[in-house]
Design a protein around this nucleic acid. Structure first.
Length: 287
DNA sequence: CCCACGACCTGTGGGC
DNA sequence: TGCCCACAGGTCGTGG
């Protein structure tokens, strides 16, 4: 699943086709993704113009020229494929833009620009919803969400306040979207390694200097990953099928047993199961 | 508040 | 080759 860099890459791929476009056809091939689609999903979208395309944390936001904003979460395996020239065959009852994986092609948008955007999601952990734009920020999904990590609202002081008094491990806290929005398992492991902080270190015990390093590491890792088009492990790809290549820059994620890349460290990357998820870190240089 | 764990759902890759 | 298990980028809910 896509974390912030992958979601941002998808957003950038969709933007030229969706922003300012009108949805001339919407097809929901099943009534639900992770959750039921909202009442009247197809009708409420059909004929609407998408005003812009933005991102908040791991959500893509598409405010409409109606009262609603379409929100999209890609879950673990959600992805879009864009066919800028429309479906390859004449539209019949249902001409799927990309028939390679019809079983998991759940939602299709056709725009007045002639583009077909198909949402695929094998595991169906993703979801879409329509939320009144006026109250978007008050919606439970967004009200408690932490700052955007690449915005000025997120700085070392903000991190320090979020960590103060918390005995939870640094990794668990960083995965909490209320602390900072958009981080997931990969980039948390990477950022903690860059900042030389153990994932298990109780948050409140991390000093100011390391918190500053952590803030810098989060920013740097996310920016580099966005530049690389995200990380492609299995399902993820940009909307034109392009692979991300940041996975080649992983220092710890998926590198169990390999030497720690920190100069003169000599440690070996360990993998630890933490609440059902894999944590990768160097026990020598991450304290 | 913290943590562990199961659930959601399906596919894939590794080991035997 | 085939089968089974572990594991996968994310939440969400429950129970101790």
């Amino acid at each position: 699943m896509p974390e912030l860099p992958e979601v941002e890459t998808v957003r950038r791929g969709l933007e030229p086709h969706l922003s300012g476009a009108r949805l001339v056809r919407v097809i929901a091939r099943r009534p639900d993704l992770r959750f039921p689609l909202p009442d009247g999903f197809v009708q409420r979208l059909t004929g609407a113009r998408v005003e812009s395309l933005s991102r908040r944390g791991k959500y893509i936001l598409a405010p409409l020229d109606r009262d609603d904003t379409l929100i999209i979460h890609l879950g673990m395996t959600g992805r879009f494929v864009v066919e800028a020239g429309g479906p390859p065959q004449a539209p019949g009852e249902f001409a799927l833009a990309t028939p390679a994986d019809p079983k998991h092609a759940h939602i299709v948008f056709e725009t007045d620009g002639g583009a077909w955007l198909t949402y695929f999601d094998a595991r169906r952990f993703g979801y879409m919803d329509l939320i009144p734009t006026a109250t978007l920020e008050l919606h439970p999904r967004f009200a408690a969400m932490g700052p955007e990590p690449l915005s000025p609202a997120f700085d070392a002081g903000r991190l320090a306040r979020a960590f103060a008094g918390r005995r939870q491990g640094a990794k668990t806290l960083l995965l909490d979207q209320r602390v900072v929005a958009g981080l997931g398992n990969i980039y948390v492991c990477e950022a903690l390694h860059h900042a030389k902080i153990s994932p298990f270190k109780p948050a409140a015990e991390i000093g100011t200097r390391k918190l500053t390093a952590l803030h810098g590491a989060i920013t740097m890792v996310l920016e580099a990953a966005i530049t690389a088009g995200g990380s492609t492990l299995r399902d993820y790809a940009a909307v034109d099928g392009a692979m991300g290549y940041f996975q080649h820059d992983f220092r710890v994620y998926g590198r169990e047993g390999e030497p720690c890349p920190t100069p003169r460290c000599g440690g070996v990357i360990a993998r630890t199961a933490q609440a059902g998820r894999s944590t990768f870190h160097c026990p020598v240089c991450q304290k």
